[in-house]
Nucleic acid binder design. Structure first.
Length: 404
DNA sequence: TCTGGGGTCCTGTAACCT
DNA sequence: TCTGAGGTTACAGGACCC
């Protein structure tokens, strides 16, 4: 349990990260699982681990690992399918707690957020004391632990919370940044994944310190202008990004992997319709319209393509998303090609209130939109799936059923 | 060992316009 | 009329994150 409490001079940014979030929420709900390996993830032949308790991680289990492999490593683990609605509820409560401390809360995902506490006054103490206060409150109210990084910049705070895990808090004051940063492996930097790490290792750059002492030009040549400049700045601890609350969404979508590969266009069409409806429902519930529709196709060999088209007028109508998605798919001429996954995404979102609805198609489109809004209301009353397009009725037992 | 689902951002290319 | 430069936008792909 890494813990270092002290004055947090020059530190106003907190990064709070729930420990093994989904798995911890499950253990909280089922206390008999406490202290045992628990895996949340897909159980099918194509499922992967979404979250795992530290007891499971000790066996080498980690997120994104195929569940089947995780179970070979840790046969005693309890595998749970996951309950996104419950996790979202816990997440909302935790974010509300953060906002009771400062309005400057920037959620990164369900289980982590940046907080800027520069303007909170001394009521709760300095940034480190605020961090400890939040850790205690999250545990009291939700029964789960979290880790906190405290620093002067977002990215150092993020690295600090990673180092504090699990159930800890780490402060990195400005004079300590280089000493903290430079021994870390390059892969620790935000934005360095397996590919970039390989490129850097080929250049003989192993640590963040190595990166810092190479000319920025060298990194720009190897990684491109943006990434090269960015990494060089980070290696010197420079990160001017502010904590920004309420960033609008840029896209939303849905995708599903089939339980077994599919080559029947009718099955693909049906899945595109289902995904378009799901995506449109999300647009309506969040008040956005999409200007661009894109589809994603992943083939049996895991190669992936995307195709997109910009609409004449922005929409949140499932039938319109589907018409476009289907046209994009049909244009590929993929009959008999084995497909593993399909996805539909709505991009270039505009607020529903700001965009004039298209008049030309008025009557018909209005009818569709009204029907889908009525279906939304029915779903809220009677549960998701209460109202579905006729082509989706009875389709839940087909051979092309998506993996769950 | 066989790779989920939700996203963001960057880059290269082509088309189009001036 | 032809050609090229340069800017903008749309599209496709890839890397990355949780």
């Amino acid at each position: 349990m890494a813990r270092e409490i002290g004055r947090a001079e020059g530190c106003t940014v907190l990064h709070v990260d729930m420990d093994a979030f989904f798995a911890s929420v499950e253990v909280c709900r089922r206390p008999e699982l406490a202290g045992t390996p628990v895996i949340v993830g897909g159980a099918g032949n194509r499922g992967v681990v979404t979250s795992a308790t530290y007891e499971a991680r000790r066996y080498g289990v980690h997120a994104a690992m195929p569940t089947a492999r995780a179970l070979r490593l840790c046969p005693t683990a309890t595998v749970l399918p996951g309950d996104m609605a419950l996790y979202a509820e816990v997440s909302r409560a935790v974010m509300a707690l953060f906002r009771s401390v400062t309005p400057l809360v920037e959620p990164l995902s369900m289980d982590e957020a940046f907080l800027d506490v520069a303007g909170t006054g001394r009521r709760l103490g300095d940034a480190a004391e605020i961090g400890e206060f939040l850790r205690a409150r999250v545990f009291d109210e939700q029964g789960i632990t979290c880790s906190v990084g405290v620093a002067g910049t977002k990215f150092v705070a993020k690295l600090a919370s990673t180092h504090a895990k699990p159930d800890g808090l780490l402060v990195v004051r400005p004079p300590e940044v280089m000493g903290f940063l430079h021994p870390l492996p390059v892969g620790a930097l935000w934005g360095v994944g397996p590919k970039t790490e390989e490129t850097l290792l080929r250049l003989g750059l192993r640590t963040v310190g190595d990166l810092a002492h190479v000319p920025a030009r060298t990194l720009q040549r190897a990684l491109g202008a943006a990434a090269g400049t960015h990494l060089h700045e980070l290696a010197w601890g420079r990160d001017p990004r502010r904590v920004v609350p309420d960033e609008p969404e840029r896209s939303t979508g849905a995708e599903e992997t089939f339980a077994t590969d599919v080559d029947d266009p009718r099955v693909v069409h049906r899945e595109l319709l289902r995904l378009a409806e799901r995506t449109a429902g999300r647009l309506r519930s969040t008040g956005w319209l999409a200007r661009t529709v894109s589809i994603k196709i992943r083939f049996a060999d895991f190669t992936t393509i995307t195709r997109s088209r910009t609409l004449g007028a922005p929409t949140d109508v499932g039938q319109e998303l589907y018409d476009t998605a289907r046209a994009l798919y049909d244009a590929l001429g993929l009959a008999r090609t084995r497909i593993r996954l399909v996805g539909v995404r709505a991009e270039r979102l505009v607020p529903a209130g700001s965009a004039p609805r298209q008049l030309e198609l008025g009557a018909r489109e209005h009818g569709r939109r009204e029907a889908e809004l009525a279906a939304d209301r029915a779903a809220r009353r009677f549960g998701a799936g209460a109202v579905r397009p006729a082509t989706l009725l009875g389709s839940s037992g087909g051979s092309g059923r998506p993996a769950r």
